[in-house]
C-alpha cells in the first residue's frame, strides 16, 4: 500500500491528481449548470481535493499496523494506543495540507481563478478544520472496521459521501436526504462557513458546527480505538486477520 511507497512517488502521483480533481469539478460545474456555477464548484473542488485526495492518506496509520502486523507492539507499549495513532497521523495531515496548497495554486492558475483563490486565503484555518474533521472521522471509520475485510471500504465510502453530500458541487437545499447526511459529516458546515464569509454573510455558526463535528469525530475515534484494543486483548488477534 501507499504507506510503503517512497514519498517522492506518492507526491508525484497525488499532486497531479489533486490539481485535476479541482479542474474536473470546476469545469464540470460550468458545463452542467452554467458559468455562474463554476466559482461555486471551484471552491467545492478545492475542499474535495483537500479531503478525499490529500487528507485521506492518514488512514495509512491504522492500515499500516494491519499490513505489517505491528499493532500488538503498540498495544504492548507504554504510551496509550490512541496517542500513538493520532501522533503518527499528524505528518500525513501536514504533508497533505502542504500538497493541497500547491495543488490549489496550480489549479487556480490553470482555470484562471487566481482572484478567487486569493480571496480564500484568510479562510485557510477553516480549510484546516475541515481536513482535521475528515481525518478524524476517517481514522475512526478505518479503526472501527479494521478487523473486517471491509476496512478499505470505509474511507472510500466516506470519500463518495463527501463528494455527494458536502455541498461541494451540489448546492445545499436541493435533495432532502443528501442535506441530512451531509449535515452530520465533516466538511459541509465548514464549506458553508467559507462560502458565507466570501459573500460577506455571517459565518460563525457554521464554523462552530464544523468544530463540533470535528470533536465528535475525535470522540468516535477514541471509542473505536478503545473497542479495538479490548477486542485484540480479549481475542488475541492483533493482526486482524
Amino acid at each position: 500500500m501507499s504507506a510503503t511507497l517512497p514519498p517522492a512517488a506518492s507526491i508525484f502521483a497525488t499532486l497531479p491528481k489533486g490539481v485535476l480533481q479541482i479542474v474536473f469539478f470546476t469545469v464540470l460545474g460550468g458545463v452542467v449548470a452554467g458559468q455562474d456555477h463554476r466559482q461555486f464548484a471551484f471552491v467545492g473542488g478545492l475542499v474535495l481535493a483537500l479531503t478525499t485526495t490529500n487528507t485521506v492518506n492518514v488512514i495509512n496509520v491504522p492500515f499500516g499496523d494491519k499490513y505489517f502486523s505491528t499493532f500488538w507492539r503498540i498495544r504492548h507499549g507504554d504510551v496509550p494506543v490512541a496517542v500513538v495513532l493520532y501522533a503518527r497521523a499528524v505528518p500525513y495531515l501536514a504533508v497533505g495540507f502542504g500538497l493541497f496548497l500547491a495543488e490549489a495554486a496550480i489549479a487556480a492558475a490553470v482555470l484562471g481563478m487566481t482572484d478567487v483563490a486569493l480571496r480564500l486565503l484568510p479562510w485557510l484555518p477553516v480549510f484546516a478544520l475541515m481536513a482535521c474533521g475528515y481525518a478524524l472521522l476517517g481514522i475512526a471509520a478505518a479503526t472501527a472496521t479494521i478487523a473486517k475485510r471491509a476496512d478499505v471500504l470505509a474511507p472510500n465510502i466516506l470519500g463518495y459521501l463527501t463528494m455527494l453530500c458536502a455541498g461541494a458541487f451540489l448546492p445545499p437545499g436541493r435533495v432532502g436526504w443528501i442535506d441530512a447526511i451531509g449535515s452530520v459529516l465533516p466538511v459541509r458546515h465548514g464549506l458553508a462557513a467559507v462560502r458565507a464569509g466570501l459573500d460577506g454573510r455571517p459565518w460563525l455558526t457554521e464554523a462552530v458546527l464544523e468544530l463540533v463535528i470535528c470533536l465528535a469525530s475525535a470522540a468516535l475515534g477514541l471509542l473505536a480505538v478503545a473497542v479495538q484494543t479490548r477486542r485484540a486483548a480479549r481475542h488475541g488477534h492483533d493482526d486482524f486477520a
Partner: peptide
C-alpha cells in the same frame, strides 16, 4: 456513477 449522476443532474 451514482455520485456523478446525482450531482450533475441536481445541480441543474
Amino acid at each position: 456513477p451514482v455520485v456523478l449522476l446525482v450531482i450533475a443532474v441536481e445541480a441543474q
